[in-house]
Design a protein around this nucleic acid. Sequence first.
DNA 1: CAGTGGTCTAGACCACAAC
DNA 2: TTGTGGTCTAGACCACTGA
Lengths: 267, 267
Amino acid sequence: MAGTAEEIAANLRERIHRGELRPGDKLPTMDQLVEQYGVARQTARQALALLKQEGLAEYRAGRGGTIVREKPTTRMVRSRAMERDHMGYYSGASVQHWRVIPGTQTEVTTEPVPADVAALLGVDAGTPLVVRRRMNGDPDIERHRQLTDSWLHPAAVEALPVLAGSSGLGGIYDRIEEWAEQPIVWNEEITAATPSPAEASALLLPPGVPLLRVIRTSTVTIDRKPLVAEVNDIRMSAELFSVAYQLSRRGAARWPVRPASENFYES
Amino acid sequence: MAGTAEEIAANLRERIHRGELRPGDKLPTMDQLVEQYGVARQTARQALALLKQEGLAEYRAGRGGTIVREKPTTRMVRSRAMERDHMGYYSGASVQHWRVIPGTQTEVTTEPVPADVAALLGVDAGTPLVVRRRMNGDPDIERHRQLTDSWLHPAAVEALPVLAGSSGLGGIYDRIEEWAEQPIVWNEEITAATPSPAEASALLLPPGVPLLRVIRTSTVTIDRKPLVAEVNDIRMSAELFSVAYQLSRRGAARWPVRPASENFYES
DNA sequence: CAGTGGTCTAGACCACAAC
DNA sequence: TTGTGGTCTAGACCACTGA
């Protein structure tokens, strides 16, 4: 048998996708691969490492060996719409009972703002801004958690110094609406990224699982100009969570529509 | 100097984040790391490999060495709302000019449906269903592209056999609305995943870039029951794209709201 | 204790592109 | 031609945990 690490990995990948190796099944050990393919130990090891990086396999320490990873079958869908109860606004009923993770604390500091958040706030990248960082999650399911960074626009802090307080309680959206005397317009932008080691460890992410990132902006009109008063940067496991929205119909797409003059498969 | 691969990587990571090493700058070569840290070549190599996996560094072949990766600064935000022009429905003005990638073709086949799509359609996983696969993108920007799989519910195919045709033109949403005699309700669920090697190569994804996945369902009411007539599974680079929605206010969150009885920092 | 993967050293050869 | 990273072989030692 010939064999490079990538070839061996492709072979095992194939067997997993065909269902020949099922979640929980033990993969061949390094020694077995060395014998089967006539390769060095490092090469066999590299093949298994590739599958782990892809999130297809995981290691059970000690005598457990490498097994096909059991992927979570039920992803938690977080429907995104603003709701409100006696406590104030919240986004999505499924996280209403979430709490700050025990052993962690909400931190309020002033830090240079990263470029992407700065662009949304309309300030220069690196400007020192008030940021409130915390990690919260489901008290009963250890891995259902998220990191949240809340960046405040300097004009909002100036008008509402209470927002920069280190209190864990916020009611921040009510304060902003009282100040602006109008409803906030919320937008969410969703993307994904490879977690930094710190994020992976805080969110208990296994290798190969990306970060799902939801960036929410709260916009009000001040002096006839739109102002992004806050940017809320939420990161969570892309394997455990998804976010959902209902699409609105705009312009000519409002029902009832006029017939299209030609057929076109939309993108 | 002591040094393990992870320590060396952490050191370089730190220098990148501090801005001491900027995008495009050359990282130390393996030989330099060997000398500086007194480690073996493989160890130095592993440190650089870690940074590449994280998407922080990339290799410039030949004499180029390993450099700090230039991350795209401007991500294309795709605002999600249904629009309509003379051709029919489309979602988001920014992709109106996209076309099928030259050299690729739309494929219409019947295949066993994967579990997550099956759950949305309300059929058993593995049921053979009609699926239309294609890759389209911006004719002018090579890497602005996406993969789209459109899975049809068997009841929709039965009522509208034309949907299973291999024509590249669809007008699929108009056909479904004509059949159901009512507007489609569209929902989108967003998540992310590590790309398979096939997806990475089709979408030209560098190592360390996750897949952003948008799953759109088209729901109509047939015989007084909701029917998901189609599931549209869209995959794109999480580094180049993000998707955006405006949050709706539901229930008690409709403006004007009543004051909250207590302050609570929403999640 | 024995079997598992993880990591390091040491050295060889290869592919690639800038010089 | 030469410097760059990529991959393979070969062998050593470590940490972990189930038997």
